[in-house]
Every structure is written in C-alpha cells, then in structure tokens.
C-alpha cells in the first residue's frame, strides 16, 4: 500500500477504525468497488476482513471485488441511531438499513441503506443491486431494487 493512498484513505475516513487488515476495503470504497477478503487456498469469502482465513488458517488472503448483487436477508427501519444529523439520514421518516446476502456465497452478508425504494415496499427476499451513495464526504455502499 503506497504511502499516498494511506494518507488519502485515512483523511477521507476520519474517526474510523482503519488498520492494516481492513485498509483495502476502505480504499475500495473510494473507487466504488466492494472488496471482500477471499482465501486463495480454500476459496471462501469471509467477513470482517481478518488477516488470515478463519476456515483453513491460510495466510494467502486477497481482498476481492464482488458484484454487490444479492437479496434482502432482513432489514430494519431505524428511527434512532448513530448518524443523527448526517445529511441523507432521516430518522424521523425512518432510515432503511438492509442486510444483503450476496450472490457470490451462501451466508456472505453485507449491510447498507436502501435507496430508490419506499420503506413500505421493502420485503425480505427481494433482489437488490449495489448503488453507491455519498455520505460524510466519501462513498458508502447502498442498495436499490434490482
């Protein structure tokens, strides 16, 4: 990881826990690429980005781009939370937060807000695709109906 990239990523994500293990994930966000660690030996994706494979203990692990396509595993409409006052987050109306199971692997799940869909229309099992939003000065993964 070149020093210039480290500096930029840390500046764009202030007050965020960024370490050597999760750095590539945040670097990917700036390029609007969703990177998830994948073991090059047993081929399993895993989350969060641990430095070695929890399945087979291999250290041959690569942050690997995923499609962002998946289905809604579950969701919650938040009327309270940690993003009070952040632009684009409306807890009065309800902030729709999804758990999405990605098509790459059973049980591989990520989270993000739903966009371009009314809260009342969100259903468990509905197909979604990635759609990045800008929040707090950097891209954040979000989803919309596929």
């Amino acid at each position: 990881m070149p020093d210039s990239n480290v500096k930029e990523v840390l500046e764009r994500f202030p007050n965020t826990w960024i370490d050597r293990d999760n750095f590539a994930m945040f670097e990917g966000f700036l390029e609007k690429r969703m990177l998830i660690n994948r073991c090059q030996d047993c081929q399993k994706y895993f989350q969060p980005p641990w430095p070695s494979c929890p399945n087979c203990w291999s250290e041959n692990v690569e942050p690997t781009e995923v499609s962002g396509n998946g289905v809604v595993h579950t969701f919650v409409i938040l009327h309270t939370g940690a993003l009070v006052g952040v632009e684009g987050v409306d807890y009065m109306k309800g902030y729709p937060l999804l758990v999405v199971e990605l098509e790459e692997q059973e049980g591989l799940r990520v989270t993000g807000p739903m966009v371009n869909c009314a809260n009342e229309d969100i259903r468990i099992g509905m197909p979604v695709r990635l759609n990045w939003i800008e929040r707090q000065g950097h891209p954040v993964p979000a989803f919309q109906p596929a």
Binding site: N15, T16, W17, I18, D19, N22, M25, F26, F29, Q47, P48, P49, H73, T74, F75, V76, L78, G81, L97, V99, V110, T111, G112, P113, I124, R135, V140, P141
Partner: peptide, 25 residues
Amino acid sequence: GLSRPPSPWPDSLAFPPSYAAWANR
C-alpha cells in the same frame, strides 16, 4: 475515543439495530 468495532463496515448492524433486524427475519 476509537476502539476496534465488531465490523468496520459503515452500516454494520452491530449491537442494537441487529435485534430488530433478526426479529424481522
């Protein structure tokens, strides 16, 4: 003020929101 969160994912369910989400499931 920083400590390692359960997940670095920006909208992770970590802690309270997760219970409502799993109840929904």
